[in-house]
Design a protein around this nucleic acid. Structure first.
Lengths: 241, 241
DNA sequence: CGGGAAATTGATGACTTTCAAGGTGTGTGG
DNA sequence: CCACACACCTTGAAAGTCATCAATTTCCCG
């Protein structure tokens, strides 16, 4: 099985990048793509635990994850923190500053991470010229909104085990869509981060994993997830795809 | 004190609408506004409990609430439902279909509601011509994303009483920004909807209200909210504005 | 190989939900 | 105009879920 984090050639062109179909260029014509290509800085690299940007910072650019993984999070004045999303290869981030050009959340690397970057003003200009890019922007922003909505449903209405099941199925779909195994995959975050994302205590997450393993639904060895009984997992998550 | 739902003249021009500063035209030049004005249908009306649109429907247009109130919600295959946002006068909705032109959520009127509507294709065209409108669109979408993020923090990390405090302060700010009292206001939703939105059982919400009333933080008579001790409410919500 | 972070497990208690009953207000039809 | 029906809201008791505290084990990095 291919490893999702295995490509690190930062010279590769968009049209030969293995992420081309899930990344920003997915809906662009080759003409549009070549115009975009010239503005992309493919050398951004941040190490594990470093931040790509923080809340209240002026936006620097839009990013696409080439390899590695990040988390975005917000916190309030009392230090309560909520992880909003995990960003895997092919995912884009930076749209949280869509509004005023100021980031609303923090982005932190979960592992050493390579990114492509488009400076904000260039992106803005290109959006003026390229209808396809505008469409793609809408698409990406829409994805982010849909993700948030689905997480809200999970946090607001589901029990802890249902939330984990929902999450695992989402990950499974994610990897499937990218040509990887949907039954066995690696999640890039520690228990602490996953439990925060799912709105529960680490210990609760750990217990749920044990219970679901015992019930034959999954197997999890550290960060390697194996889905053993897809149907039961789906019925637990109240989903059918 | 003015009543938020008191204006129902559907002939009024944008620039003399009392919502002009919080609505779509807020960032537009008078030239841009006049172009926009011609495309706005100011006669949409839906009655209490009727739906403006449903998930999976093709988008019809972008709406602005003139009077009344709506809720947007999503649900999964098992009928679990989560209210995502309440839309009050001056708020816009329809951006959930930003992505593919398909709505991702349902919009239902909480009371008889008047709206302004801009047909989707007209809006799209105008966005191509008017940079100010594009900026305003980004602004509105950014507001929606920020709202979702803040609700995620609340649902994921806060206790039930902290969630209610956070909600009441948000409502207070909302009305303050629109020139109404920040200490005394009417919320447009029944307990059932509010409790769903805040991810708790109706009974829990009712108990929290009783406890917070007894503690002298608030007074709530049906849907009339009075904030009695702003500071304590803020410290409960872990916020300081 | 050792120190420390990450993960698991157990016991306990707090918080929240559920089920049940009763109260309050509103709108409609007689 | 009153009365009744119904929806909405509140309150109580019991049960269940989940968080916290504490102890231990496992694994990873230097």
């Amino acid at each position: 099985m291919k490893n999702p984090s295995s490509f690190d050639n930062n010279k590769v062109k968009c049209d030969s990048c293995s992420l081309v179909n899930v990344c920003l260029p997915s809906g662009l014509s080759s003409h549009e793509m070549s115009l975009l290509e010239g503005s992309i800085d493919k050398t951004t690299k941040i190490n594990k635990k470093e931040t790509l940007f923080k809340a209240n910072q002026v936006i620097n650019g839009i990013y696409a994850v080439k390899s590695g993984a990040l988390k975005t999070s917000i916190s309030n004045r009392d230090g309560q923190e909520q992880i909003l999303e995990f960003h895997l290869p092919g995912d884009m981030l930076g749209f949280d500053a869509f509004n005023q050009g100021i980031h609303t959340c923090n982005a932190t690397a979960l592992e050493d991470t390579l990114l492509c970057k488009i400076p904000m003003d260039t992106f803005d200009n290109l959006c003026g010229q390229l209808p396809g890019l505008r469409r793609e922007l809408r698409h990406q922003v829409g994805k982010e909104i849909a993700h948030n909505q689905s997480l809200l449903l999970s946090l607001g209405q589901q029990q802890t085990d249902e939330r984990l099941a929902t999450f695992l199925l989402k990950m499974s779909d994610h990897y499937k869509l990218r040509g990887f195994s949907s039954n066995e995959f690696v999640i890039p975050m520690p228990r602490q981060d996953l439990s925060n994302y799912l709105g529960m205590a680490v210990e609760t997450l750990s217990r749920i994993i044990s219970r679901m393993t015992e019930a034959g639904l999954i197997k999890i060895d550290r960060r390697v997830v194996t889905i053993m009984d897809l149907e039961k997992l789906q019925s637990l998550a109240h989903s059918s795809c």
